[in-house]
Design a protein around this nucleic acid. Structure first.
Lengths: 348, 348
DNA sequence: CACAATTATGTGATCGATAACATCGTGCGT
DNA sequence: ACGCACGATGTTATCGATCACATAATTGTG
């Protein structure tokens, strides 16, 4: 992909509110009022303004408005800089909700670690003004406090400190469904490849897995922690296979599951005949792998939208969050990679 | 991922240049000069200003600056709204280059088609001011012209109109390497699953594939066009398999290749024993599939950075583009999915 | 020492849109 | 007929940082 030289024609100078006012034969304040609430204008005045704006292809200078009103029209979404891909649909959901509330959503990657990360975050915020920020990446406590001195920040996926009465621990509940599904297939030991524990999603999946295993009276299948990648899933699979006492693996996301399947393959193990594998995320291509992957489907757009609703609620304490859109937006999708536990003779 | 309620402490009011000036005991213009070029200040004055700024944790209000200078400090990157993943690494490359040039890069998804897409683009641009835009998605001619009436726009991946002397048709050349690799393995008919042809990347890969097949004197293996997804690759694989006259498939990206491998599997065909498959993009998980995928590795960060250099060159006609960072950033990575063509008896 | 040039700093205006305050016209009630 | 209230519109000030012009201080030269 070699980009083309742009046509370097100088852009047209944007029309100002004074030019619209002159053309319409009204004051600039009337034009401003038209934009704010046209019902407050006489119909004839309103038409004159509308025509002048159309003729000049006028759009308001939002920085000027922002400066005067001290209200920012942009929201910030922070995404991981280090992972190769981030699900667009989650961002699309967040962006659509932001747009409905009248905001523009700007997506910026937050990279680095330690002081470098702190500085990077500061510089991102300097590029404001932002009305608020929605972070899809973990933010350390001190970074979060510093950011919140400037603007409201919501870290998607974090729970409030009380952890109680949260009927909506939706993120973990599907891990229970996984454990129950595998137990129903006869699996007594289920290993877990967990994501990096600074991520709430990884922590919550691990916590619910542990509880579900305990509640179902299953034996310890082992846990290995990994980064969010197939390579890391492969390495974790190798670690787990050093003690192959499990007949199923629950991987914290689909990429981890891909890596685990590869590790099993390299050990001459068949999926799911010898060991079942379950992922999370239901990437579009997961249905087409060989074997196709049993996984947790998330309505990513709804998740993104819900996260944005929380930020909007924080921006406007009087604003009622939009009603929950229905079911939790997660379901276990059964495919080829999970099947009955092998009989004891076959496991050896 | 249920987001947490934000701590709703009201953000501190940002310090203004007048407050810094008063604290430092100088005029506001001296503070401005300090920021513009501190060498023009006496050392003692410079120190006073620096101390006051640090004490007040001052950062300039960029919208006020932008309004006065009429120079935008933000660049826009347009990414696809419809594809499942957000191309983080390419954007990281672009963002780092933008940052070095003193710009903030805001990433926005461009969705929709036809008039809806045009309107969406207009609204995105209304959220400016942007100094320029770098698009990683196709933009129709009229949309592009309209955007360029406002700001310089570079569409990554498009070639200039002359298409000549472009020694750097780097995007297509790897398709030649693929065809040569497969021909070297004895494949006489190589099918191609092409991406959507409004994308320059898809067009270019198809064009170079055709030329390379012709130059190598190979027979027609068939072409099927698809969207950028595994599902679409699966469907295209089915179409190609209605006339199974090929022994290899070159898929325009890795997701297409995954779908194709699945289609072959469902037809009882083995990869690569019966049919070889080659992808493009080298997603990190591609090395861990079963079979691991032969694919084209692209240095996505370098590609993004190069695209941004082109936009910066368009913004500043006197600016020399940064030197090319070395090799083209693409190479064919051989893995398990490609192998020798089956002997004629085995192909049936 | 005086004058001119240069360096350093200060005062006021400006950018585009909205907030704040002012003015005009009309309709209604007494 | 007159006064008051309300709707509609206009004039002026403001937001924060830089531009433009003005003033003060210092340095160099004859």
């Amino acid at each position: 992909m070699t980009p083309s030289p742009a046509e370097t024609r100088p852009p047209a100078r944007a029309a100002t509110i004074y030019e619209v006012a002159r053309l319409a034969g009204v004051s600039h304040q009337t034009v401003s009022r038209y934009m704010a609430d046209r019902s407050k204008l006489k119909a004839s005045t309103s038409e004159k303004v509308e025509r002048a704006m159309a003729e000049l292809n006028y759009s308001p200078n939002l920085t000027a408005r922002s400066l005067r009103t001290k209200a920012a029209y942009r929201l910030l979404a922070l995404v991981p800089g280090s992972s190769p891909y981030f699900p667009s649909r989650m961002l699309n959901g967040a962006a659509a909700t932001a747009r409905k509330a009248g905001y523009h959503l700007d997506v910026v990657a937050l990279e680095g670690a330690g002081p470098e990360r702190t500085e990077r975050l500061r510089r991102i915020l300097d590029g404001g003004p932002f009305a608020g920020a929605l972070s899809f990446v973990p933010i350390s406590g001190t970074d979060l406090l510093q950011a919140q001195e400037r603007i409201p920040v919501v870290v998607a996926g974090e729970y409030d400190d009380k952890m109680r009465g949260q009927g909506r621990i939706s993120d973990g509940s599907a891990a229970q469904a996984i454990v129950e599904h595998l137990a129903g297939l006869g699996h007594r030991r289920i290993a877990h490849i967990a994501g990096p524990q600074e991520w709430p999603a990884a922590r919550n999946r691990l916590a619910v897995y542990r509880k579900a295993v305990h509640d179902a009276g299953l034996e310890d299948g082992g846990v290995a922690e990994a980064e969010w990648s197939a390579a890391s899933g492969y390495a974790a699979g190798q670690i787990l296979l050093a003690k192959p006492s499990f007949t199923a693996i629950f991987a914290a996301n689909d990429h981890l599951a891909i890596g685990a399947i590869r590790a099993l393959h390299d050990h001459g193990l068949r999926v799911p005949a010898d060991i079942s594998v379950v992922g999370w995320d239901d990437h579009p291509e997961s249905a087409f792998l060989v074997p196709s992957l049993t996984t947790v489907h998330m309505d990513l757009e709804a998740q993104g939208s819900r996260a944005m609703e929380q930020l909007l609620a924080a921006l406007n304490p009087g604003r009622a969050p939009a009603p929950e859109p229905g079911p939790p937006g997660m379901r276990l999708v059964l495919r080829e990679s999970s099947g009955p536990a092998p009989s004891p003779g076959q496991a050896d």
